[in-house]
Design a binder for these strands. Structure first.
Length: 926
DNA sequence: AATAGAAAC
C-alpha cells in the first residue's frame, strides 16, 4: 500500500467529471439548406408539423390554419420555412394584425385545452414506428451475421459472465407494461437489458418496431454506456447504427427504428414538449431511479399518467435493491425482477473497531473553552434531525455499556470524546491510513470526505506526515481500502425562512453501501466507516429525495409548459411530493416575476421563460440582454450562472487565484462582469492559437472545459432567442444584437432586470481612515456576508450602496456567492414598483418600499413615468417578440429605450438637487 | 474568510 486519494463525497459516490467535447453544432447532423428538407432550427414535433404543412400532405384550409397556429405559438409570423421572419416584412404584415390577434386568442384556448382533438389527429405523423418489413429482414440478417463476427463473439463471452445475462430469457419486459429491475452496480443491467429487448425484437423479425430509450442521470454515463453497448455489438456509436446517445448540446443518434438511445433524463423531459406521448418510443428504460433525482421523479409521474394513453408503451425502471419495492408500489404493484450482484467480499469496520485497533486517543483540537454541544451545533438544525440527535443521546449510555465486554475502557472514552466534536477527526484518518500502509496488503486507499476544508486539511496533514504517503491519482480498479468519513454535504430548502442551505449530514445507509462497494470492484477489500454502531443503527435508509430539498420555480414552469395540469395537483402525484408550503412559495415567486398570472396560467413572459433551458431569473436576464442589445456578454453571464463559473482554485493556490480574479474584474465591482472579461480574454487567446488559449487559462486559473461548455450553451440560448423572434440572427456576435455590449453600466442594469429582487444593501464602514470591509444586508435575512470567492469580498470602496446577486445560501452563515454593484437608476428602471413619498420635508422615491432614495418629487415623477413607459414597451416586446429597430431613432421603442440607456450610462449620481440638467435630459428624451 | 453533486429537443 502506498497510494491514497480522496474524493468529495457525492450522492453517487463517484469523483465528478465533466466532458465537453467540442459540440459546436451539436445537432449539426441535420444540415440545412437542401430543398425539401425542414429548416434546421425546428425540433421534434415541430419538424413533423413542418412536413405536414410543406411536405406535400394535402389538407383543408381549416386544418392548415390550425396547424399553423400551433407552430406560431412559438414561431410567430408567416415567413417561409427558410428562417425566422425578416424585419423587412413588418410593413407588409400590418394588415394582418387582426388575424394575428385571432391567432393569439386561439393560442390561448389551445394552451388551456388539455388534449386538442386536432393534435391527436396529427399523432400519426410522430408515430414513427411504422413497421418496415425490409428493415426487419435486414436487421435480422445483420444479427445472424454477428454470430460469425469474432469481435462480437469475444464481447459475448464477457457478457455471458454478467449476472444480468441470466435474465435474458425472462421476458417479463414484454409481458408486463411496467417492470422494476433491481440489482447492484456491476451486475450489468444498464448495458444488457436494453440489448435484450432490442435483440428479442430483431430475432422475431420485428426490429423496426423497437426503439428503446434509456435515461441516465449523468451526461458522462449516457455517453460511456452507449459506447460500451456499441462495442459489445461490434459496432460504433451513432449515425444509422443500433446504439447512440444524446445529451445537452451533443449527440450521436442511432437509427430511429431498431435501436437503443441512451440519453440524460432532461432530454426526455424536453422531448415531451413536442411529443407529449413519446409516440416514437416503444420502450422507456429509466435507470438509477433509486437516486431520486428531481428529473427522474418528475419523469416517473409523467410516465405513470402517460400509461393511460399509451397502452403499447413498455416501461422498465432500474433501481438499487434497497427500495425497488417502493417503485413497484407506485406503479400499481408491477412485477419486480432482481438481479443478484457480484462483487468481491468487503470487510466492514465501525468506528469502535478502528479506535480499538489503532488505540487511537483524540487530542483536543485547540485550547478553546469547550461549549456545550447544543451551542456548537448549527443553530438551524431541522426538526427531524433534532429528534434523531435526541434519540442518539438518550441511547448512548446503554450503547456504551454494551461495548464494554468487547472493547477497552480507553476505547469507549475515546468514542465519547470523538462524539463531543461534530467535525470529522482528521488525525484519526491519518492514523488509519498509516496503519493500512504499514500493516495491510498493497492497494489504493479511497477516502470519502464531505467538503473542501476536510480535503485540504487532510492534504496538509499527509504532506507533512513523516511516513511516505502522498495523495495520488488512482483509478476505480485500484481501490482496495475505503475510508468512509460518514458525512455528506446536502442542500436543503428551508421553507420557513425561504432560503437554500447546505450542511454536512450523516450519510444514509445507501450512501454507506455505495461507498463500501468501491472497495470490492476487482478484489476483496476493506471499508472503514468512521461512525459508531449506535449511529449506524440510526442512519436513514436514503437521503431525502431532491424534489423535497430544492426550490421549485423552474419545475413549476416546466409543469405548465408540458400542460400537466394544475401545479399542485401534479406535484402531489409524485412519489414523495414536496411540501405544500414549498409549492406555494414557488408559485408566489413566479407570480411576482410576472411569469404566472392570478389563475396560475403562463403569461407571455412566463411562456418564454419556460422555453429557455434556465431558471426563470436567468431567462429574464437573457430576454433583456436581447432587447437591450448587449447579447453576447449577457449570455456569458447567464450561461455561467446556470452552469458554473469557469474559475478553478487549486489546493494551496487560493490567494494567487483570488488575486488573478481581482485583476480580471477590472475594478468593475462585479463577479458577473469578471466572468465576461475572462470569457472575452479566452476567446481572444483562443483566436491566437491553442498554445495561447492554454496559457491564458493557466495564468488566470480558468477551466477551458467549462469555458467551452459556456460557449456552447450561449449558442443554444441564442438559437432560442432567434427562433422566438427576439433577435435577427442566430449569431450571438451579430452587431445589431451587441450595440451596447461594451456599456458596463447597461450590463449591470440588465443583470438587475434579470435578478431583481435579489438585492442587498451595503452599509459602508464608518472608519474613514482605516478602510474596513463593508457590512451587507438583505430585506429578508438581515446581515449577510459576501462569499470570500467573490471579487467584492474584501472590497472597501463602492460607488453605490446596492448589490444584486444570484446565489444566496446558508452554510456557516448566509453568503451571497456572486454579486454586482448596481446604481440607483438601474434599480429604479429595472426593479420593482416605484412609490413616491414626502415626509418631514424629505422627498423620496422607493422601489418596493425598501430601496429608498432621496429625490425631489418632480424628478421622482419623471422617473416613475419613464419607468411606466418602459414597462409597457417591454411587455409589448415580449408579447410580440421583435428585435428593437435601433436604426429608426424616431420609433417609440427606440426613443424610450435610448433615453433610459442614456440615463443609466451618463449619470453618475441621481440626486444633485435641483438637477435641471437631468430634467432637461428627461424631457428631451420623452 | 470559504468552495456537495448533477442536469436541459
Amino acid at each position: 500500500a502506498g497510494r491514497v486519494a480522496w474524493i468529495r463525497s457525492t450522492r453517487s459516490g463517484g469523483p465528478s467529471q465533466s466532458t465537453s467535447e467540442n459540440s459546436c453544432g451539436g445537432r449539426g447532423a441535420r444540415g440545412g439548406g437542401a430543398r425539401g428538407k425542414h429548416p434546421p432550427h425546428l425540433k421534434g414535433r415541430e419538424i413533423g408539423l413542418w412536413y405536414a404543412k410543406w411536405g406535400g400532405i394535402k389538407r383543408s384550409e381549416a386544418e392548415r390554419k390550425s396547424v399553423r397556429t400551433y407552430v406560431t405559438s412559438y414561431f410567430d409570423g408567416d415567413d417561409p420555412p427558410e428562417g425566422p421572419q425578416k424585419m423587412g416584412k413588418v410593413a407588409e404584415m400590418e394588415p394582418d394584425k387582426k388575424q394575428k390577434q385571432e391567432q393569439e386568442e386561439e393560442k390561448e384556448v389551445k394552451m388551456k385545452a388539455k388534449v386538442e382533438p386536432r393534435e391527436r389527429d396529427l399523432e400519426y405523423l410522430f408515430q414513427d414506428l411504422v413497421r418496415k418489413p425490409a428493415l426487419d429482414v435486414e436487421l435480422k440478417s445483420d444479427f445472424q451475421a454477428k454470430a460469425e463476427n469474432p469481435k462480437y463473439l469475444e464481447m459475448l463471452k464477457f457478457r455471458e459472465t454478467l449476472p444480468s445475462y441470466g435474465m435474458r430469457e425472462v421476458n417479463l419486459v414484454q409481458a408486463s407494461r411496467v417492470v422494476v429491475i433491481s440489482g447492484e452496480t456491476g451486475c450489468g443491467k444498464t448495458t444488457q437489458v436494453t440489448q435484450f429487448i432490442l435483440d428479442d425484437y430483431i430475432q422475431r423479425g420485428a426490429g423496426s418496431l423497437c426503439r428503446v430509450v434509456c435515461t441516465q442521470p449523468r451526461r458522462i454515463s449516457a455517453i460511456s454506456v452507449a459506447e460500451r453497448v456499441a462495442a459489445e455489438r461490434a459496432e460504433s456509436v451513432g449515425e444509422g447504427r443500433s446504439c447512440g446517445y444524446q445529451i445537452r448540446l451533443q449527440s450521436r443518434l442511432p437509427r430511429k427504428q431498431g435501436s437503443v438511445l441512451y440519453c440524460t433524463t432532461g432530454i426526455i423531459l424536453q422531448w415531451l414538449r413536442s411529443d407529449p406521448c413519446l409516440s416514437s418510443i416503444s420502450h422507456l428504460v429509466l435507470d438509477e431511479v433509486h437516486e431520486r433525482s428531481l428529473q427522474s421523479d418528475v419523469l416517473l409521474a409523467v410516465v405513470r399518467d402517460l400509461l393511460h394513453s399509451r397502452e403499447d408503451l413498455k416501461v422498465v425502471l432500474m433501481s438499487a435493491t434497497l427500495n425497488a419495492e417502493k417503485f413497484s408500489k407506485y406503479f400499481d404493484n408491477c412485477p419486480m425482477i432482481h438481479i443478484p450482484g457480484y462483487t468481491y467480499p468487503v470487510e466492514e469496520y465501525l468506528l469502535e473497531d478502528v479506535v480499538e485497533m489503532l488505540r487511537f486517543r483524540p487530542q483536543h483540537q485547540d485550547r478553546r473553552p469547550r461549549f456545550p454541544r447544543s451551542f456548537l451545533q448549527n443553530q438551524w438544525t431541522r426538526p427531524e434531525k433534532e429528534a434523531q440527535e435526541a434519540e442518539y443521546r438518550q441511547s448512548w449510555p446503554c450503547f456504551a455499556r454494551s461495548l464494554r465486554d468487547r472493547f477497552s475502557d480507553d476505547t469507549i472514552e475515546a468514542l465519547e470524546r470523538l462524539d463531543e466534536d461534530d467535525k470529522i477527526n482528521l488525525d484519526l484518518i491519518v492514523a488509519l491510513i498509516r496503519h493500512i500502509v504499514m500493516n495491510e496488503d498493497d492497494g489504493a486507499i479511497l477516502v470519502f470526505l464531505p467538503g473542501w476544508d476536510n480535503i485540504s486539511g487532510l492534504n496538509d496533514l499527509l504532506m507533512h506526515a513523516p511516513d511516505p504517503v502522498h495523495p495520488n491519482t488512482i483509478t476505480v480498479d485500484d481501490v482496495v481500502y475505503v475510508i468512509d468519513g460518514g458525512k455528506i454535504k446536502e442542500t436543503h430548502f428551508d421553507t420557513q425562512n425561504n432560503i437554500s442551505t447546505m450542511a454536512a449530514e450523516w450519510v444514509s445507509l445507501a450512501n454507506a453501501k455505495q461507498r463500501k462497494g468501491r472497495a470490492g470492484r476487482v478484489s476483496p477489500g476493506k471499508c472503514y466507516h468512521l461512525y459508531n454502531g449506535l449511529r449506524a443503527s440510526l442512519l436513514d435508509n436514503y437521503q431525502l429525495p431532491e424534489i423535497q430539498r430544492t426550490p421549485l420555480e423552474e419545475l413549476c414552469l416546466q409543469i405548465k409548459i408540458l400542460k400537466l395540469g394544475p401545479i399542485a395537483s401534479f406535484l402531489r402525484k409524485t412519489l414523495d411530493p414536496p411540501s405544500e408550503k414549498a409549492i406555494e412559495l414557488a408559485i408566489t415567486h413566479l407570480k411576482d416575476l410576472n411569469a404566472l398570472d392570478r389563475s396560475e396560467e403562463l403569461t407571455p413572459l412566463g411562456f418564454h421563460l419556460a422555453r429557455l433551458p434556465v431558471e426563470p431569473h436567468i431567462g429574464k436576464m437573457i430576454l433583456f440582454g436581447a432587447l437591450l442589445a448587449c447579447l453576447d456578454p449577457v449570455l456569458t453571464i447567464a450561461a455561467s450562472l446556470s452552469f458554473k463559473d469557469p474559475f478553478c482554485i487549486p489546493l494551496g493556490k487560493e490567494k494567487l487565484a483570488d488575486h488573478r480574479r481581482k485583476i480580471l474584474s477590472k475594478n468593475s465591482k462585479s463577479d458577473h462582469l469578471t466572468i465576461v472579461n475572462a470569457f472575452w480574454g479566452w476567446e481572444d487567446a483562443k483566436r491566437r492559437g491553442y498554445k495561447c488559449e492554454r496559457e491564458f487559462c493557466w495564468d488566470n486559473f480558468l477551466s477551458a472545459n467549462t469555458l467551452q461548455m459556456l460557449h456552447n450553451m450561449k449558442g443554444q440560448f441564442a438559437e432560442h432567442l432567434w427562433a422566438a423572434g427576439f433577435v435577427r440572427s442566430k449569431d450571438l456576435k451579430d452587431s445589431s444584437a451587441n450595440i451596447n455590449s461594451e456599456n458596463e453600466k447597461l450590463l449591470k442594469a440588465v443583470i438587475v432586470a434579470g435578478l431583481y429582487p435579489k438585492v442587498a444593501k451595503i452599509r459602508p464602514s464608518l472608519h474613514k481612515k482605516r478602510p474596513m470591509p463593508v457590512k451587507v444586508y438583505t430585506k429578508a435575512d438581515g446581515k449577510v456576508c459576501i462569499h470570500p470567492k467573490s471579487v467584492n469580498a474584501e472590497e472597501t470602496q463602492f460607488h453605490y450602496t446596492w448589490l444584486i446577486y444570484h446565489l444566496k445560501m446558508r452554510t456557516s452563515s448566509i453568503f451571497l456567492y456572486d454579486c454586482t454593484e448596481v446604481s440607483p437608476f438601474s434599480l429604479l428602471f429595472f426593479g420593482g414598483d416605484i412609490s413616491i413619498q414626502k415626509d418631514q420635508e424629505q422627498e423620496t422615491i422607493a422601489v418596493d418600499e425598501w430601496i429608498v432614495f432621496q429625490s425631489p418629487a418632480r424628478i421622482a415623477h419623471l422617473v416613475k413615468n419613464l419607468k411606466r413607459e418602459l414597462d409597457v414597451l417591454l411587455e409589448e416586446k415580449i408579447r410580440q417578440p421583435r428585435p428593437v429597430d435601433w436604426d429608426d431613432r424616431g420609433s417609440s421603442d427606440c426613443a424610450v429605450i435610448s433615453a433610459i440607456i442614456d440615463l443609466i450610462t451618463t449619470t453618475q449620481v441621481l440626486f444633485i438637487p435641483p438637477n435641471l440638467q437631468l430634467c432637461d435630459l428627461f424631457l428631451q428624451k420623452i
